[in-house]
Design a protein around this nucleic acid. Sequence first.
DNA 1: GTCTATACGAAGATAGAC
DNA 2: GTCTATCTTCGTATAGAC
Lengths: 185, 185
Amino acid sequence: MPRLTDARKELRRAQITEAAVRCFGRNGLERTSIADITAESGLSTGSIYAHFGTKAELIQAAARATLAQRAEVLGGYADGDSPPGPDELLARMAAAIDPVQARFGVQIWGEATTDPVIGGVVVDMIDRLRVMVRDCVTAWLVKVEGRDPAVAGEHAEPIARQLMALYLAELLQAALRPTSEETTR
Amino acid sequence: MPRLTDARKELRRAQITEAAVRCFGRNGLERTSIADITAESGLSTGSIYAHFGTKAELIQAAARATLAQRAEVLGGYADGDSPPGPDELLARMAAAIDPVQARFGVQIWGEATTDPVIGGVVVDMIDRLRVMVRDCVTAWLVKVEGRDPAVAGEHAEPIARQLMALYLAELLQAALRPTSEETTR
DNA sequence: GTCTATACGAAGATAGAC
DNA sequence: GTCTATCTTCGTATAGAC
């Protein structure tokens, strides 16, 4: 297994998807051409198509990468000795929102309504996030509120649902907030 | 002022935007061509361009019409003698969600992230909805919970925010739910 | 693997008859 | 106002050299 070259390959792919996300954040999924991405990434058309079969595949990869990145941020919250309570958790999640990623994220929602592949990615990711939020709330109920671990999970579930809804609304709001360029104009 | 012909004009425009929304719900904003809309509406390219200058204008008109229609549903809730409480209100709003309009709505969010005109339409409409929800909650606090009208408005505000977030999440979920065609396959 | 140059198709928009 | 036919542009994807 040539894992060193594999790693390089992954790096290139990441370079491309990250440039793509910046373009998408500026101009939207369909209004950024491959040419735009070549300009942003410094690479060429041929190079991009060497790594992704179609533009749709590129979008899928970018979506997976971005959503996974957002999930990672929540990773360690449930582990500490004093996990954050619901309000604090939401505040942290909201504070971690990046405008460009928020815009791309909402664009992906739109795409997910008609593209089943993207649809799968999005619902999986929302589900993963909700589970992580639930676990964090459970840990909080047990560790700082002193609830019975046996029932804390059940209690955490509806709270997690509400938090996710609030978070999605926050994400949407961030995505709709005018660009800094637009506000300074 | 020829208001009869104006009315006919509006009717045609509605015919076009409604056909467009059905197409958008199926295939997304950018993957429905003008040709698709002619097929769905029974009209021709020329006719469509006689009513809308560009495809973007058509999308804007469709967005305004659809969002206004959703706002209308909430219209009378605050007026009755026994306005619904938060849970009941959310349930009614969720029950009134149409899958096709939900998909189009979420697509519009995506478009709003990069198109300032659509952006304005969306934030205006979300704002209008939130105000209506707030008024409904206020009426409920006063009329069925017996709260002091002087402070009910303040109390209603955060509740309305939560309800809106929950509603938007519900809308997103409906939009991501697989089409009936896909599930029966 | 990366580049440049290009083929090819699709879709937005227009012209002009009726 | 509505149609059909068409123009033109643009963007994806490929071919082939290095």
